[in-house]
Structure formats: structure tokens, C-alpha cells
Design a protein around this nucleic acid. Structure first.
Lengths: 157, 157
DNA sequence: ACTGATAATTAGCTAGTCTAGCTACTAGGG
DNA sequence: CCCTAGTAGCTAGACTAGCTAATTATCAGT
């Protein structure tokens, strides 16, 4: 908040921070491209990924994950159900609830779309020594925690 | 969370790959939340970030960066210009071209929105020893290269 | 059984991107 | 010098996907 005229990339940031930022940028751009490849929008693809990573969940939970309203989640689930990517299962104990599950086909398709990219990343990962891998995993995990904590509380005012 | 019944995560991936994947997911979710905080959509915020990181560029370049059509870039620039986030400057040598620049105010606002998050990441970065930092920077840089290379060629088509 | 809370849905509206086509401009060959 | 081809950005109209507000069905407590 001090100097508006400062050229953006602030030099006082750690190199590791800078590469993380670039990683974030690259991730977003790639996600957008991938969504196009799979003929769906970014939210839909994120939904499939979230269901795959975290397992089946209700519409409200899914909405919270995606940062959209439950009404929007309903139409999103409609859309993905119509295209065969997810399935609705009503909860027998609480019949208001539906449990949304990614179909095997959807997970396979998502996996296929990302396959080459993930393999390439994995190749980089495998080139690490055990010590190096420990450093990387610890660092990235802590960054993930930071990202997950951010936005939950007071950021932009 | 971390439902054991989740069929997705293939176990043959390196731990480092898995945390990168989680980082990608966290990045996207946070970007969405941040966009809401700044009262703009994800694309607009990505545009501001891209202009800040890579410097001023033309509408076509910006479109390519964002994965949208040039027509959409025009309306995006209209929108951001109207809200005072970017400025159009016509190129004197090639008068078809416009150069789009993020205003100082916009960069400041973006910086402010991300400030606490970036500082938190930076704190993690600074906790690294020089050796560790070297490992992290090298690893992440290579992952970024992979991501940038992906989607340009033989993926789903 | 009644009341209030919760999960998902529906209806109507708004905003943002896309395709298709246009204008303005530059560069290069008769 | 003019004419053609190619490039950069902009305009118009259709479509997609998100939001708010209101609705239905169900659950839990009294």
C-alpha cells in the first residue's frame, strides 16, 4: 500500500515465492485450455476434479468448494448429469440430501486429458533425490495450507 | 474430508506430483475467491495479473494469454478501461495496434488483494535454507515449463 | 402436530464469451 | 503508384452460466 508507482514485480520477494506465483499463473492458463479440450467450462472441470480428489459430496458442499451458490450448483449438476459426468444419489437417511458422484467415465476422461501433463510433472518429480523430494513436498504443502487459509478471512478489506 | 472411498488418486504418482496437483486446485479456488473480493471475474483479474507480470501488450497477445478470442478481449479491455483498471495507447508506428497497460491503481489494488497471501507464502519461502531454496526453485521452474508446454501440442486436440 | 431450520430446486435476470463479419491499416508485387 | 493479401482490433447478435429470490420437501425440537 505504500508506493503505487513501484514497478510490479517487487524485488523484495523470495525467489521461491516468485516461481510459485508463476506456477499459479501457468496453472490457471492450462486449466482454461484443458477445459476447452474437454468441451466444458473451468468450473465444471474443477467440479469433476474436486469430486475425484475429495470423494462424493452433497450439492452444498460442492458449491462451497467451487465458490458458487447452491442454485448454481444445481444447474451445474444438471449439466454434468446430462452429459454423463456425474450421478445423483439420494441419501436414504436424509432425503433432502443428494450425493453427487463423479462417474468412472468422467474420472477417466479427466485423467486422460491431464495424463501427459501429469506424467511430465511426475518425471520431474521422480528426478528428485529423497532429500530433495522431502524439501519440495514440505514446501509445497505449506504453501497449499496458506492458499487454503487465505480468502477464508479478511483479505481485501 | 480425505474420503478413503475416493477411487481417484492413482498411487503410482510421486508425492511431489501429488502436492503440485493439490497446489493447482488450491490456486484455482483461491483465484475465484479473490476475484469476488475485487468485484471482478476471474478472467479480468488474470488479465490484470498478466499485464503486471509481463508488462503492456496488445489485445491479441492478451487474448492468447487468457485463452479467449480477440473479440472477447476487446470487450474485456472496454470493461477494464471503463473501470479504470487499464489504459489503451495506440501504437504510433502501427496504428492498428493498441498497447494495453495496467494502471498503477489497478496494480496496487491487485497487489493489496493478494498482499497477505503473498506475504504468507514469502514467509514460507524465507524459511528455506539456500540449498533448499535452490531445490524448490529448480523444481517449480521445471514444472512451470511443463505446464506451459502442455496444451500447446498433442493433448486431446 | 406445529414451528423453525436446512437441502435442493426452480424462475427470472444479468453478465461475459463466442462466432461471424467489418473497418482500418501495413506490406509487397505488378 | 495502385492493388492484393494479411493482420489488429472492433461491432452485433446468440448462447452459456452465474446470481438473487422464492418454492418444495424434509428433518429436528417442542
Amino acid at each position: 500500500m505504500s508506493d503505487a508507482s513501484a514497478p510490479w514485480p517487487p524485488q523484495d520477494l523470495d525467489d521461491a515465492t516468485i516461481v510459485v506465483r508463476r506456477l499459479a499463473e501457468a496453472t490457471q492458463e492450462l486449466t482454461g485450455r484443458m477445459a476447452k479440450v474437454m468441451a466444458m467450462n473451468a468450473t465444471d472441470m474443477t467440479a469433476i476434479a474436486a469430486l475425484g480428489l475429495n470423494g462424493p459430496m452433497g450439492a452444498t458442499d460442492l458449491a462451497r468448494h467451487l465458490g458458487i451458490r447452491t442454485a448454481s450448483a444445481t444447474t451445474l449438476i444438471d449439466r454434468l448429469e446430462r452429459s454423463g459426468h456425474v450421478e445423483r444419489v439420494r441419501d436414504p437417511h436424509d432425503r433432502r440430501r443428494v450425493t453427487v458422484t463423479a462417474t468412472a467415465a468422467a474420472q477417466q476422461a479427466e485423467r486422460a486429458a491431464w495424463a501427459t501433463t501429469i506424467e511430465d510433472i511426475d518425471a520431474v518429480s521422480r528426478s528428485l533425490s529423497p532429500d530433495q523430494r522431502g524439501v519440495v513436498v514440505d514446501f509445497v504443502s505449506r504453501v497449499v495450507e496458506v492458499l487454503q487459509a487465505s480468502g477464508r478471512n479478511g483479505d481485501g478489506s
